[in-house]
Simulated scan of single mutants.
Amino acid sequence: MEAGGVPAPAVAAAAKNSWPEVVGLSSEEAKKKIVEDKPEANVQVVPADSFVTMDYNTDRVRVFVDSTDKVTKAPRIG
């Protein structure tokens, strides 16, 4: 709450960390949605069976796609 009992903006509480709604979309459609929600995101499209580093990066969102360029699992920050 802010001073005077007025609720603080809900922006921080509503910050997204995953995008399950893009599963099944093309990589370009998924990237567009993710950037709408998190403009500073470094969106990386990766084949679903690829090895990736396990380091955590708050600006990175990996989008795993199949051979038809469809998102296979919910992208998330990391």
Rank of each mutant, 00 (worst) to 15 (best):
K73T: 13
K32M: 06
P39K: 05
M1D: 13
P9R: 13
G5A: 04
D59N: 13
T72L: 11
A10H: 11
V52L: 01
V11G: 06
A48M: 15
R60N: 03
K33C: 01
D49N: 14
T53S: 10
K73G: 12
V63H: 04
G24A: 05
Q44I: 06
T53I: 03
V71L: 09
V6G: 02
K33D: 04
Q44Y: 04
V46C: 09
F64C: 12
V52Q: 00
S27Y: 01
A8G: 07
E28N: 04
T68E: 15
P39C: 02
E29Q: 09
W19A: 08
P47V: 11
V22N: 00
M1W: 08
A3R: 13
V61S: 10
D55S: 12
V22R: 01
A13I: 02
L25A: 05
D66T: 13
S26K: 04
D66G: 12
K31E: 04
K32P: 00
E2H: 15
N57R: 10
F51M: 10
A10T: 09
N42K: 08
P7Y: 07
S50Y: 00
D55I: 01
S18A: 15
S26V: 00
A41C: 05
I34P: 01
V45S: 02
I34K: 03
T53V: 06
F51E: 12
V35Y: 02
I34T: 00
T72C: 05
A30S: 01
A14T: 08
D37E: 06
A74I: 13
S50H: 00
A8F: 03
V63E: 03
V35A: 01
S26M: 00
A10W: 05
E28I: 07
K16L: 06
T58R: 14
D59Y: 13
V22G: 04
N17I: 14
V61M: 06
T53R: 08
Y56W: 12
P7H: 10
M54Q: 10
F64Y: 15
T72D: 06
A41N: 04
D66Y: 12
S26L: 03
P7I: 10
T58S: 14
W19I: 04
P75F: 03
P39L: 02
E29R: 03
A74Q: 11
K16E: 09
A3E: 12
D49G: 12
E36A: 09
S27W: 03
A41E: 02
E36S: 09
P9C: 12
V71N: 07
I77T: 15
V65P: 02
G4N: 11
K32T: 08
F64Q: 12
E2R: 15
Q44P: 00
V23W: 12
S18C: 10
V43F: 08
K32E: 13
V71I: 08
E36K: 08
